[in-house]
């Protein structure tokens, strides 16, 4: 287990429990009472800390090293039926963007999402979840494939941004994202977008146009990361906490401002403390929303989608 700085009290209690268990084992004494008490206290501490997360702390949880990534969700939700499909048919296969068909309660669904790596080697292979243009084009190819066979689409968003490299610029990062925004608006099948970690700017939005946009409880979604915002506006990284608050990037803020459609609660202590439970909740949300969206005609869904995004923004006349 990895612990964040503000999780120190939780870490200490977990450590104590572990020690008690070892002592009990070694000395063959019954410490179950003490352990139960400690576990109670741990639960309580977790509740307290996680009940009052600051926006910056939530950003930290969204990047927690133990947090599950896209493929973990997909594999669990599809009960191992997920078949990954590769390539954008133009340049290459972007490992930072994954996608393919999977079956969810007997129904075929197209899953697409940014993938972060689980260890150093994989992080490099996955380019830290930062897609290149071919990633967005692969995503669009797969969406069109799903549309052709009338299968709903679920996108899973977790990215620190679209990759800002030389080749990305050469191959039209801007055009690739723009094209997706345009084409996703018109998809005839239901589209559900779920932010499971970081929702950073255009890199997230590039697969983020849907009938339903949902955020897990400990995630963020905004135009820029708090660190970059701090470095641009305050000219130093020291103001990232202030920036995180100012950006109103938490799920509650985003829902309150009408910029997303719903929040999926995480187990207390974050998605990583009980991954199984998190996956189940996400699956339930997908099924619930699909049932609702099935009731609308494809034309109605497209009209609603355009209306929803057209209504975003605050101006004074």
């Amino acid at each position: 287990m990895n612990y964040l700085d503000f999780e120190k009290p939780i870490a200490e209690l977990a450590d104590q429990i572990e020690k008690q268990k070892q002592i009990a084992e070694k000395n063959k004494v019954d410490a179950s009472q003490t352990i139960l008490q400690l576990e109670d206290k741990l639960e309580q501490t977790r509740k307290e800390i996680y009940g009052n997360l600051t926006p910056w702390q939530r950003v930290q949880v969204s990047r927690h090293p133990d947090r599950p990534y896209t493929l973990a969700y997909i594999n669990h939700i599809t009960d191992g039926t997920f078949t990954e499909l590769h390539g954008d048919r133009t340049v290459k296969d972007d490992k930072a963007m994954v996608g393919g068909f999977g079956s969810i309660d007997g129904r075929t669904v197209m899953f697409i999402g940014q993938q972060k790596g689980i260890n150093l080697k994989m992080r490099q292979l996955r380019n830290f979840g930062m897609p290149n243009p071919e990633g967005y084009r692969k995503a669009l190819r797969l969406m069109k494939l799903a549309e052709k066979f009338n299968k709903p689409i679920v996108t899973i968003i977790d990215t620190p941004g679209a990759f800002p490299g030389i080749e990305a610029e050469e191959r039209g990062q801007g055009e690739a994202i723009a094209r997706n925004l345009f084409e996703m608006t018109l998809l005839k099948v239901p589209v559900i977008c779920i932010i499971i970690g970081e929702g950073a700017s255009g890199g997230a939005l590039g697969i983020g146009i849907g009938d339903r946009v949902l955020m897990l409880e400990n995630t963020w979604y905004s135009v820029i990361s708090p660190e970059s915002c701090s470095s641009i506006l305050w000219r130093s990284w020291d103001h990232k906490e202030t920036a995180a608050s100012a950006l109103k990037l938490t799920p509650n803020d985003m829902l309150g401002n009408g910029l997303i459609d719903g929040i999926i609660k995480e187990p207390i202590g974050g998605a990583h403390t009980n991954q199984e439970e998190t996956f189940c909740r996400v699956k339930k949300e997908i099924l619930k929303n699909l049932t609702e969206l099935d009731k609308l005609s494809s034309d109605a869904r497209v009209i609603h989608r355009i209306e929803k995004f057209s209504n975003m923004g605050v101006v004074v006349e």
């Binding site: 255009g202 939005l205 985003m254 910029l259 923004g313």
Partner: peptide, 10 residues
């Protein structure tokens, strides 16, 4: 912030 991001979508 996110309002400006959504202008891309809009």
């Amino acid at each position: 912030a996110a309002y400006s991001l959504m202008q891309m979508a809009k």
